[in-house]
Amino acid sequence: MCDDTTIQIVDISTPVMNKNDRFAASNRELLSGKNIFTLNLISSPGAGKTTLLESMARFFGSKMAVIEGDVQTDRDAERVRKAGCQAWQIETGGSCHLDAEAVNHALGHMDLESDELALLCIENVGNLICPSGYDLGENLKIGLISLPEGDDKILKYPSLFSRISVLIINKMDLLPHIDFDVNRTIDECRSLNPEVMVFTISAKTGEGMEEFCGYLENQFSG
């Protein structure tokens, strides 16, 4: 009976990320056409992404807009709006990362026409693994870690920390209370990623924020 069956091989030869990468390219074209510099901010939950954005919103005001990615609730968008800038919430409904298509839909809901608008911050879903492989169309991928997470995290998540352009170490105000070797974290990140820029900040107290925001301003005013 086996003689009566044949195997047909169908060639597919398609990178699985093709669709995401097409949307990312389209986002990049749309945003660069409007002279908007875009960040993709990635960290574990609770590292201080939203607090950082609140602090940045106070610095940049209406120059900045935010896309928030969360599994559920629009709490973060609400927080950033209160700090003074436009924010759109993506609720992924269970998915552990943002993809470029979701960002593309969000861009369709936002007002990108203001001449003042120069910076778009995309806050990814809190996760150090899944968001790392998804290009959203950003100019800069930023990894954020905070002191309470421990200084041994970089080498545990090489997929993310080898791809970022900027590392932010947050919650520096806690340094007197926590055993965290800042130099170890920086050295380990540079061992994976020799060209990474590093900023040590406290989004809560404002420590280091002027340097970081000044760096971004140079990027988009350029």
Binding site: I9, V10, D11, I12, S13, T14, V16, M17
Partner: peptide, 8 residues
Amino acid sequence: FTVDSVEI
């Protein structure tokens, strides 16, 4: 990461 082929 690619889908190369399927066999039917």
